[in-house]
């Protein structure tokens, strides 16, 4: 059974690219447009991994990570955040909130797949 990955990003183009890449890699993808949307969907669907942007309206990435870790079904899943180089402090904040790893934007599809493989096996 294919593993399910959620991508939470307010940028439609990034979501599209992430979704496209993951589907090509054989994963099922659930999209969320911001942190709040993501948390709502997480409560109802079981996902194996979460990829989230940090800057999102309504609920940002840090908030999403904290919220997800509080859900029993997401306690141990890998959570990867998308950051930009200028956000070194955000990286630390995200790790403290429970993120497994990060991907620095801009990234190529191969880089995304490499990280997914690293944390999901």
């Amino acid at each position: 059974m294919a593993k399910v990955i959620m991508t939470a990003d307010d940028s439609a183009s990034v979501r599209q690219m992430v979704t496209f890449t993951l589907k090509q890699g054989g994963y099922e993808v659930v999209e969320a447009v911001d942190g709040k949307d993501a948390l709502q969907k997480l409560a109802g669907t079981k996902v194996d991994m979460l990829i989230t942007d940090l800057n999102m309206p309504n609920l940002d990435g840090i908030g999403l990570i904290k919220g997800a870790r509080a859900l029993p079904s997401c306690k141990f899943i890998p959570i990867v955040m998308l950051t930009t180089e200028s956000q070194e402090s955000k990286k630390q904040e995200g790790k403290a909130a429970g993120a497994t790893g990060w991907i620095v934007k801009p990234f190529k599809p191969e880089q995304l797949m490499a990280v997914v493989k690293k944390v999901l096996g």
């Binding site: 307010d10 309206p57 998308l82 930009t84 934007k105």
Partner: peptide, 18 residues
């Protein structure tokens, strides 16, 4: 201010991706 920042941030981040 937050909206302006996020708009710029998204354009920057996604722009470099594509």
């Amino acid at each position: 201010i937050g909206r302006v920042f996020r708009a710029m941030h998204t354009i920057k981040g996604s722009g470099s991706m594509f």
